[in-house]
Amino acid sequence: MSESAVKTQQQRVNTRKILPPFVTGQEIVLIGVIVVLWVILGLTTPAFLAAGSVGPLLVQVAPIAIIGVGMTFVIITAGIDVSVGSIVMVAAVVTARSLVEFGLPFWPALLLSLLVGAALGALNGVLVAYGRVHAIIITFGTMNLFRFIGLQVFGSSTVNNMPPTFNFFGRGDAGSTLGIPHAFAIAVVITAIAWWYLRYTKGGRSLYAIGGNAHAARLAGIKVQPRILMVYALTGLLAGLAACMTLAAGTSTLDQSVGTGRELQVIAAVVIGGTSIIGGRGSVVGTLLGALLVQTVSSGVVQLGWPSQLAFFFVGLFIVIAVGTDLVRERARRRS
């Protein structure tokens, strides 16, 4: 009995040695920055901390955070996916048109959006995993391809008179329970599951191994290619979910600019969250915080009455600061 106790003890010690701390320095810094920003905004614009302002903010964070989970997986494997904006567009327009023309109810429409997203993501995955070409090139290509498909589905106009099927994800009263927006709650749940998966499962750890050194991972018996395929398909699936939230967030009209630039927002959130673009290191909790920061900055600039385009400047600045602090810490880590 004592032997097994010792064994579990040892296992625990080993686990502690291998796994990084629950919350990394980057995440603490991010929480600090977000709190400071919220306090400043709260003091200067009294409307900010009122529930009427924070709720919509959280709703807008959700799609970035949800796609960000997939993107974090992708970047941990040393890949990247710049086509997510176009995937959101295709999933959104296909779903929107089926809502308008066939009056699809909530669940089938959600399922349709997820399927479209996952299919496009799987195409990325197949090409990246088996194509012997760098992920950024592949996804630049599919980005154009998907945008073409999306525009074809649009025809030459907007999709009008969308029914409020997805109000469950929206900013209205139907979109939140006890003041917590459903979309944000879903983002938190997905982040939590992904966090657990990355930290405690064999599959999750193997993603880090692939990102650290794909060759070594292969020699260690990890099936690299199927895992990579899965990661891109997952990102597509999550983009499909985010598309439904995008449909809910807007008005009853969907225009052709949907999803444009989404990929950069998501990548910004991921790198601000401390995930290394070279692969092998990263956390989904950081990504959620990064998404929160990006959206806080965007909303804050508007609330302060500054030109809304100034938000881009601050997003850029935060990327530089976040990655900079990470580089400094990395250097310190290597020295010790």
Binding site: I80, A268, Q309, L310, A311, G316, I319, V323
Partner: peptide, 20 residues
């Protein structure tokens, strides 16, 4: 800084300045 990150950040920053 990895070039992808640098230029993603400056893409945002320069674009913002040009618009503002």
């Amino acid at each position: 800084y990895p070039a992808l990150i640098t230029t993603l950040a400056t893409y945002y920053a320069y674009r913002s300045i040009a618009l503002v």
